[in-house]
Write a protein that binds this DNA or RNA. Sequence first.
DNA 1: CGCATGGTTAGCGCAAGGGCTAACTATTTC
DNA 2: GAAATAGTTAGCCCTTGCGCTAACCATGCG
Lengths: 115, 115
Amino acid sequence: MRAVLLSFMAQYSAQLTGIFVALSDPTRRAVLGQLGKGPTSVTELAKPFDMALPSFMKHIRMLEGSGLIRTRKSGRVRTCALEKKPFAVAEAWLSAQRAGWEQHTDRLEQFVLAT
Amino acid sequence: MRAVLLSFMAQYSAQLTGIFVALSDPTRRAVLGQLGKGPTSVTELAKPFDMALPSFMKHIRMLEGSGLIRTRKSGRVRTCALEKKPFAVAEAWLSAQRAGWEQHTDRLEQFVLAT
DNA sequence: CGCATGGTTAGCGCAAGGGCTAACTATTTC
DNA sequence: GAAATAGTTAGCCCTTGCGCTAACCATGCG
């Protein structure tokens, strides 16, 4: 029961870590901004950046690994699309922090914030 | 004029990078959660973590470097306190993304998101 | 004064991040 | 079928992140 909660927390924390790591690079943030306009192929996405394709692909893989984008290959072209849920996860953590500033009363919340 | 905007964008992007890097570590997130309850000394903050002090201090320095906390030493004890503005910066970027999903019309916004 | 407490500095080790080139595979397209 | 296009794989380099120990101030207290 408590073990279940702890395991949930561990996964949640790992997911948060992945998301924030992904967001911590300007190239990846720019890619996300671009994908906000709609699904795009890798080569198309890479165009604005002065970077070799393999390097760029690492960013794509990292974005996909964190769940921030979804990717599908049809024919020889891989198309990337935004995945919106992880953004909500990040926003939720931030607003949980904010919530913590105001009231320091809820014990479960304290446990969550502290883990 | 345009150069000014570009320079602003560069700093903004660097700040965002710093913030997300800082948030991408579980220990640092936990510290922030703790600091939500009020200012705390380094040793006090370090207690829950099975980590040597110098290692822990690196996290503190990184949090301070990103602007997420403020730090002041009086006597032999260094006290850390939350700095709330950077949280707003992160939230602003996330909500700008969200805004980008809905309408792709504002040209300045596109420029901002893409940089 | 002398010792405990709270940080700090220096240096070391390992893993991961972010970039590259070279070479290769798998589709289209002409 | 040959050549261009779109990714992929492998391997290398260098920097940074995150942990450690050992040794060193600096302050507070008995």
